[in-house]
């Protein structure tokens, strides 16, 4: 494992912990998109299906369990926790899951590395992860009032994606037979979606003002 991959995973872990910490300690999910969180739970459920049959390393298994556990806990908190769920703004978080789910499923059935159940689901999870942040970005733009933790959460997620791209470049030049076009294209699109957010995040950080996205 190279340093970019490790840093990417740790940033991903940090993003999830920041969000869980916010929800657990402040008992509020204001500004958090349940739609995005449900999509991530589905991303992990479909991608880590191999957890029972395909042992890569102790590290991989633990990380998979953490991402599965944390994503389902976050969804549980927002839907079921008696205090947290009151802060969920359903009327602002209106993005339709199906608009993302269906195209990803169709695309995974058509464009994949191998047409097997496991591989199609894996590919579906890649496509879905690429766009799963959209409901959250739309919500941020709508509410405009972004608290620090939510801003940090999205920033860390974007940083994780950017580090994964560096990891792929590194692996491409250091490993033989390391070519995964589908992963790379989906991952690059995913990272580009954060471009706008990054711009405003850095602006607010540089000028030391509250993060606000333009309407």
């Amino acid at each position: 494992m190279n340093i970019f991959r490790l840093a990417g995973d740790m940033t991903h872990l940090a993003s999830v912990l920041v969000l869980l910490l916010k929800i657990h300690t402040i008992k509020s999910c204001a500004g958090v998109s349940l739609k995005t969180q449900e999509l991530y739970a589905l991303v992990f459920a479909t991608r880590y299906l191999d957890i029972f049959f395909n042992f890569v390393s102790f590290y991989n298994t633990i990380m998979k369990l953490i991402f599965l556990g944390s994503s389902f806990s976050i969804v549980w908190y927002i839907r079921r926790h008696r205090i947290v769920r009151r802060s969920y703004d359903k009327d602002q978080d209106t993005f339709r899951h199906l608009f993302l789910l269906l195209p990803c499923l169709l695309l995974a059935l058509v464009i994949n590395e191998r047409f097997t159940f496991k591989e199609v689901l894996w590919t579906f999870s890649l496509y879905l992860e690429a766009v799963a942040i959209l409901p959250q970005l739309v919500l941020l733009q709508r509410t405009r009032n972004i608290d620090n933790l939510t801003g940090q959460y999205v920033f860390l997620l974007g940083a994780y994606r950017a580090l994964y791209i560096l990891n792929w470049i590194y692996r491409y030049f250091t490993e033989e037979h390391y070519v995964h076009w589908i992963t790379w294209i989906a991952g690059t699109i995913q990272t580009l979606l954060y471009g706008d957010f990054f711009y405003y995040y850095f602006q607010s950080w540089k000028n030391n003002v509250r993060l606000e996205l333009p309407a």
Binding site: R5, D9, H12, D50, N54, V56, S57, N60, M63, K64, F67, W122, Y164, N167, E176, H177, T183
Partner: peptide, 10 residues
Amino acid sequence: DSEPEGHDEL
């Protein structure tokens, strides 16, 4: 020297 089965990234 074929590619190993499965995916090793998260």
